[in-house]
Nucleic acid binder design. Structure first.
Lengths: 252, 252
DNA sequence: GTCGGTCGGCTACCATACAAGTACGTCAGC
DNA sequence: GCTGACGTACTTGTATGGTAGCCGACCGAC
């Protein structure tokens, strides 16, 4: 109910309802506001957001293509559980693309590029001081995106971003440990330093180990929150939530 | 009219209408049956395929996400022209992922893996002898997919495939020169040989130059068929085809 | 008590209707 | 002949109705 009106209010900026719904849902899923395994019904979402089923449905199809939801025809749509295979695949994609871009960036990077990266670093430190986790996540995303932009392959970022989404869902659970943030920022700084110095191989190794650290976090999370993960390849019975209906009645 | 009935006939195999339409359209676009710049109207396609606008529209949204069509609200949907930037981006993605996978495959590859790859090589040679271009394209795709599968990252293939689609549209025009096929097959063989020998760096270099050759083909095509390419970043007036309506009348 | 059939309610899928907006041909005015 | 306003026909976007299919609870038979 809270965001029902806000959706159409922001519609003026050239984006249509489908894109807005898509962004909202993606944000909720990646931010774990919608937990893996939970049902996302076309009808419920349409009612909540104050739009028709069509843009909601189209958004869900896109999210399914990104691997963030699983659509079971005539059964329901569910936020996908984190699959070992998908996480490993996402890590592989991210590492390959970001490191390849970095290797090309070395040499290309001008003083202006480095300066802009350092601005992001100080902003990250500020977010760390204020324990602003959400802000740090956003700055982290921006840092990695800009790093790819320096190489001239900014248009490849959406692919990385999509892979990153799979990893981020799990990371949200781990990062509350704030000492992690300063560690990550230190690694960011090391990458920028080596980039500026033009040390190709060490920059590559530095970024790679940074990304691997993020990856290892996910594995730790798996031990803590197994319910968010899926061991099976095809958990073909997502189990419909039969309690929802009675709860809705109680609400009235 | 020809494929109108065939669509629903093949529907039994678990795939819904949306997926079928998506496959048909993707195939037509990548196979250049639908040329870059041509209009793809939701209504026309729905009528031709004998379905409603809904699955057609949803397919187009997915194709837009893949970068194969451009949707201009209230104006029309058009097969995207080949953009310099997109091609370069696709090449970067493909090269980074395939080479990274190959590096991991070296050492992992068993005798069985190598044998299966060689089966594909002989099949490619057979396609070459028969000048079966379409068959070669399919075998080429399968070869590269299996190469990634050896590394254990088969699930990353769809990403490569999507990038590859941008390149393939242009390649279709160049490959009629059949001497190219034997050259490409030779490079494939070299990669397999080096993979089997466990020579990581040379295998990487070999695959990379192979992919670069494909990339350079695209640039040659640009000179021959500039109308398929787009110089501008935002060619915001795709020009509606006003002759279509009168032609449709003449058809009746 | 346990098993098997039935039935209600939910789901996503597809089809259709309406709305908002753009391009292009036409025609009046100059 | 040229220019500019207008209207029609088209486009995609959104809303809504109807259908097939699946789940899960209920209930009767054994």
């Amino acid at each position: 109910m809270t965001s029902a009106e806000g959706l159409h209010a922001a519609r003026s900026r050239g984006r249509n309802t489908r894109q807005l719904v898509h962004e909202v849902l993606r944000s909720r899923i990646v931010g774990l506001e919608l937990e893996p395994g939970s049902a996302v019904s076309e009808n419920d979402l349409a009612a909540e957001l104050g739009v028709s089923r069509t843009p909601v449905r189209e958004s869900l199809i896109l999210l399914a293509d990104e691997g963030l939801v699983d659509i079971y025809p005539q059964m329901g749509t569910f936020v996908s559980r984190i699959r070992e295979r998908d996480v490993a695949s996402a890590q592989f994609i991210r590492e390959a693309l970001e490191c390849a871009a970095l290797r090309e960036a070395v040499g290309k990077a001008g003083a202006r590029d480095v300066a802009e990266l350092r601005v992001l670093l100080t902003a990250q430190e500020e977010a760390d001081r204020q324990s602003d986790m959400e802000g740090f996540f956003q700055l982290d995303e921006e840092f990695h995106a800009r790093l790819m932009a320096v190489s001239g392959h900014a248009s490849a970022w959406p692919v990385v971003s999509q892979a990153k989404a799979q990893l981020d869902r799990a990371r949200r659970l781990s990062l509350p440990m704030t000492q992690q943030m300063s560690l990550l920022i230190g690694q960011h700084r090391e990458v920028v330093d080596l980039l500026e110095a033009g040390d190709l191989d060490r920059a590559d190794a530095s970024l790679r180990s940074h990304l691997r650290l993020v990856f290892s976090d996910v594995e730790k999370i798996r031990a803590k929150h197994p319910e968010l993960f899926s061991d099976e390849d095809a958990p073909l019975r997502p189990r419909r939530d039969s309690a929802r209906r009675t709860a809705a009645r109680g609400d009235r």
